[in-house]
Nucleic acid binder design. Structure first.
Length: 435
DNA sequence: TCTGGGGTCCTAGGACCC
DNA sequence: TCTGGGGTCCTAGGACCC
């Protein structure tokens, strides 16, 4: 029988920050998106202040004075490093791991013997001791049930009384007698199910399907007819029929994006070219990281949907004569596309580059009349640039079109509350002192 | 003043093919 | 009265995820 665990960091970004600033524990803390725009992670205390996921910072920052709310700029380099540490310990729970997001991984528990609940508590304690990150672990016979168990584990801990206390931190739905399982599912809103978003939750509730138990008891064929094959699969997963397999090898991305909001509006073509060159460069690095080549480049720019004034929103797709992962070729295509859509006089607040129609770099379409040595020289050059940038820091070697001086970048990100790179920069390493 | 970034999958409908 | 049958590919849009 299939069996899965889901290990998930609690309020992950906030927890990463708290590891290095213990004084933040018990305070309401939020981590902000790029440009310090929205709240993308909240401590339990911040959730208790009714701060919603995605709430704009400017709407909640008055809580700083009244309730001591702390807002921090996102430090993704730090979170990525903490994630690696957490994942490698979580992997000890079973033979196969799928890293599902920066703070979540599924573990395949099929065939693992012993008391899985006790084993999970040990792994949870080890992650906490070795990294400082608190986690919740859910176990179920399908990935959807493991996700649900994880939700229950975290909710039982955070809101005493919501579920039996023994479900706190680690919840094993697979070990529950059927009647107890029904009680738990009947006490959980349908919108908490993985794959049921706001829209579908609303439609289900209108039809009298309010709890997870109600959804589990629906007829899959009816669900397929009235909704979709996707929701049908969710129903079957709730019924204990495993339909979503563990993916322990990451599948290559089919598209790669790099998009950013600007710290302040940009009107002129010059800085836009810089920004788009930078985005294409970042995207090309990710592309080479998965050993793929792109066949098309999409570039877009738009004005703010929230602000008054003339609106502009356009995109252009630039086909490449041949698929490539060469930064110069991708930047050139992106800039070409940008020039084709650019119109002066608009206060643009966001732009981006998407690499589309990605194929493995090993699929090489040979052509007559091209010097293969040139191509292989170029890929050696790219590999060298990647090595240098990895070793000496992002952007150490870059194209001149992305700008030659960071300080003149009027489009650069706003990060006014950035914390140090505690585990990723020698200069920022915390020093322990004996008192 | 001020609102993130990066993905996936499915479906319906149109164009086109034999 | 009465207008085939079977298929592929592409795109736009919707919904979801973290």
């Amino acid at each position: 029988m299939a069996l899965f665990a889901l290990v998930d960091g609690n309020n992950f970004y906030v927890s990463c920050e708290r590891v290095f600033r213990p004084s933040l524990k018990s305070w309401p803390v939020v981590v902000l998106s790029n440009n310090d725009g929205c709240c993308i992670a909240r401590s339990n205390e911040a959730k208790a202040l009714s701060i919603k996921m995605g709430a704009p910072w400017f709407e909640v920052k008055h809580l700083n004075d009244s309730d001591g709310l702390v807002g921090l700029s996102a430090n993704f380099t730090l979170y990525g490093d903490m994630s690696d540490r957490m994942m490698s310990i979580a992997a000890g729970l079973g033979p196969h791991q799928e890293i599902y997001s920066i703070d979540e991984s599924f573990i395949d528990l099929a065939g693992v013997r012993g008391d899985l609940t006790a084993r999970s508590r040990q792994v949870r304690a080890r992650i906490l001791q070795w990294t400082g990150i608190p986690t919740g672990i859910g176990i179920g016979s399908t990935k959807t049930l493991a996700k649900l168990a994880n939700f229950i584990a975290k909710t039982a801990e955070r809101k005493p009384g919501s579920y039996p206390a023994e479900f706190g931190q680690v919840c094993n739905l697979a070990a529950l007698p059927a009647s107890d399982l029904d009680a738990v599912l009947g006490a959980t809103k349908v919108g908490e199910v993985w794959g049921v978003g706001r829209r579908i939750a609303g439609q289900l509730e209108e039809g009298g399907i309010a709890t997870v138990l109600d959804l589990m008891r629906m007829d899959p064929a009816t669900v397929r007819r009235r909704w979709s094959v996707v929701l049908e699969r969710t129903v079957r997963e709730l019924q204990g029929i495993s339909c979503i397999a563990l993916q322990d090898q990451p599948t290559p991305k089919k598209e790669i994006a790099c998009t950013r909001s600007f710290s302040r509006p940009v009107t002129d073509l010059g800085p836009l070219i810089e920004a788009v060159s930078e985005f294409a460069t970042r995207a090309a690095e990710k592309l080479r990281g998965q050993a793929s080549v792109a066949s098309e480049v999409l570039v877009f720019a738009h004005t703010s949907p929230h602000r008054p004034g003339p609106r502009f929103s356009q995109s252009a797709v630039v086909p490449l004569r041949r698929p490539t992962s060469d930064t110069a070729a991708l930047v050139q295509a992106a800039v070409l596309g940008l020039r084709s859509i650019y119109q002066p006089g608009f206060a643009l607040i966001k732009a981006g580059v998407l690499l589309l129609d990605l194929v493995p770099g090993s699929l090489y379409q040979g052509e007559l009349d091209l010097e293969p040595e040139v191509t292989s020289e170029r890929s050696k050059l790219m590999a060298t640039i990647d090595t240098l940038n990895n070793k000496y820091g992002k952007g150490t070697v870059h194209l001149a079109s992305s700008g030659i001086d960071d300080r003149t970048r009027q489009w650069g990100m706003r990060q006014e509350r950035l914390t140090p790179g505690y585990t990723t920069a020698w200069a920022d390493m915390p020093i322990a002192k004996a008192v």
